[in-house]
Design a binder for these strands. Sequence first.
DNA 1: CTGAAAGCGCTTACAG
DNA 2: CTGAAAGCGCTTACAG
Lengths: 347, 347
Amino acid sequence: MKGIRQLAEHLQISTGTVSRALNGKSDVNAETRRRVLAAAEDLGYVPNQAGRSLRQGASKTIGLVLNHGSSVGAGNENFFPLVIAGLQNVLSRHGLDLVLLLCPREENYDAFLRRMVARRLVDAMIITATRVKDPRFAFLTTAGMPFVSLGRSDSALPGNNWVDLDFEGIAERAVLRLFERGHRRIAIAAPASDVNLGKLFLEGYRAGLAKCGLQEEPDYIFYEQALEEGGYRVGEKLLASKKRPTAIVLNAELMSVGLYRRLGEAGLVPGRDLAVIAERESPVGRFLLPRLTCFRLDLDALGRMLAEMLLSNLPAFAEGYQDVPRNRIWPLELVEGESDPPLAAPD
Amino acid sequence: MKGIRQLAEHLQISTGTVSRALNGKSDVNAETRRRVLAAAEDLGYVPNQAGRSLRQGASKTIGLVLNHGSSVGAGNENFFPLVIAGLQNVLSRHGLDLVLLLCPREENYDAFLRRMVARRLVDAMIITATRVKDPRFAFLTTAGMPFVSLGRSDSALPGNNWVDLDFEGIAERAVLRLFERGHRRIAIAAPASDVNLGKLFLEGYRAGLAKCGLQEEPDYIFYEQALEEGGYRVGEKLLASKKRPTAIVLNAELMSVGLYRRLGEAGLVPGRDLAVIAERESPVGRFLLPRLTCFRLDLDALGRMLAEMLLSNLPAFAEGYQDVPRNRIWPLELVEGESDPPLAAPD
DNA sequence: CTGAAAGCGCTTACAG
DNA sequence: CTGAAAGCGCTTACAG
């Protein structure tokens, strides 16, 4: 089956009627619609997307823009697949397809985004891995490309939609919890890059210290990559510190793999010799020994919220999504592990 | 800037000439081309994809089809991002964009694939996570959608292109290595599902046993999910076995996280009390204690090979890719770790 | 070297 | 309820 014309000829009716029948327009005879649908099913007809897109000025496709390295895979296993499931759950109700867009390593990120916008391959975008200063907010706003951001940024404009995890909240709660458990020398690992969550994580950490009446100790802040290797280096630095912290808050659970190894190499036992709380629950953390204390969130619901925010921005779908909030800070719940028992002998 | 017409009007020349200039056709005056290119750059003009696709019958977009759960994230962190980098490296040379397509959880996989093919959103596809019997080979072949498969299948047709890891080879070599190191009771973990690599992995295992003159012991074959939790259950079963194996070959490195934990809970030390070799090198394995002995491959090169095979199938690009092989079994190299020292006291 | 024109496959006012 | 026609933005024979 080639196109709608062939289908129409086969049915001996006009392409206009076929199109209306296929698209569920109301002004079509019931029997005609039945015949059209049956024939389309039979002959395996599906509208050519290019034709539709051109005519309608919309591709019915949403793009999820992921940063190479920072987002897919690297430290985010089990994050995006679940968010995507939530996104698709909502989008598919409206016949919208989701495609993932990755900037090729060789291409400049801004050029890539500009090209993706101009090509009009997608009607709207979801951007991720926001930075403190992030030109994408202004660019997409100006370009008229509807979008929602997974992540905050100082560059977000008043009208922009975003959802972000409560990074500051979890860092603060981690500090308070460790304090209650007797810890007074509490370190933190934060990303070395300019991703916005690093800033938030540190803010929460400082807020926590302040609430506990603890002094901030610059030596206890470790800027490292949010991966296994970064965790290993955190361990290295911890072992070298003059007055070693008794607890640490990691902004990524994968770091704990490297940290555990480094501690083990030195004959130290995670949990017993160093309390650890890591940001996000994931299978790796659950099967480490000791099991990580971490924070859990409903990723599927997060994906659905992102989709709903996006739809509230698209004129064709906004009606059903009137009362979706413009912004949302997503809560996380502490999951008790084995990695942060109370300190045996508080200083 | 809206369309090519506005650009042409601005330049006071015809849209045809603008199009030819933009698309690098030879029959354009050098000065005209310069002006067109400058104006396009200036005004931020990029051709509307729908118009191009419709006219050319091609979208200049390639789809990488990933299975939810089995492929992105789950157990494959650091796998696809690197393969994708290789793919894009080759595709971008030809102005081809890559998009990732994930089947929504609610949608039937076959229906999804049929829809994606019919929509003509992409000109060609890369499929992954092949099963022993896999209807996609026949479907895509019949539908005339060019494709290449990352993974073999009994359903692959003679003309189909594929690249696959040498699963049988690594399983066999793992067994031989463990045998040389004194092990006689060598277990294996293979996927519980019908993914083709599970079959290959077992074949290699059996070939290895045969070469070593070892008897196959049904109790030493553990069918488990290739994730942390599956590894934990392998540990459970190992501890329960009458005559415990002294070594195990895992088909996924993430399993070792769960296995290490289960052994640790029982007071056993991985490496010392159980030799472990896992399939693929990854950061997690490198930072486990003991570091995993595993197999390494050049994922970027694998991605490039996939792209080249695909291009050799596309009439518009085939010329430059005449001598790309039709199929390829990709070699892996053993990376020595700390998890499989020689057995202290061979039986 | 350039312009005018056709047409890719579709949807949608418009007329009846 | 249906058909005929226009047109979305682009590229590409074709004529000059």
